[in-house]
């Protein structure tokens, strides 16, 4: 469900940072909602953020049916966004996904947690690398 709650300053600055990158970058808040991805991610996602809208990162990830090398579904415990969100640590994984436009792509995903204070987790950033 879209949220109009005020965004944390970290999100506002991360969005501006991501907006100026040619690397596909996604921002997730502390509730696990995907709140932004940049223009560079549109090709990989297969749509604009305005078209896709806010949704949980888990829903978003499932949409892409991430698979491992042998084409098995990538287990939750290997998904970088889940690791960064649940375990609050950086993670990276190579995978195959099917974008919203139906195109199959090989990507790498790096995700890391964002802390505004040592005890204030405000979300994660996920970066998608074209393989």
């Amino acid at each position: 469900m879209p949220s109009d709650r005020p965004k944390h300053l970290v999100h506002i600055l991360a969005r501006e940072f991501a907006s100026n990158l040619a690397t596909p970058t996604l921002i997730v808040d502390a509730d696990g909602m995907l709140i932004f991805f940049n223009e560079a991610a549109e090709d990989l996602v297969g749509g604009t953020f305005a078209e896709v809208g806010e949704m949980t990162i888990a829903q978003f990830s499932d949409t892409f049916a991430p698979r491992s090398d042998n084409d098995d579904p990538l287990p939750q415990e290997r998904r970088p966004t889940r690791i960064a969100f649940e375990e609050k640590r950086a993670a990276h994984e190579e995978m195959t996904v099917t974008s919203l436009d139906g195109v199959e792509r090989q990507i790498g995903v790096t995700a890391f947690p964002l802390f505004a204070q040592k005890d204030e987790f405000v979300g994660i950033v996920a970066i998608w690398w074209r393989e």
């Binding site: 109009d4 506002i12 969005r15 501006e16």
Partner: peptide
Amino acid sequence: AGRFEERTRDW
């Protein structure tokens, strides 16, 4: 932090 004139207030 970007063109705030084009953003919704939550951003």
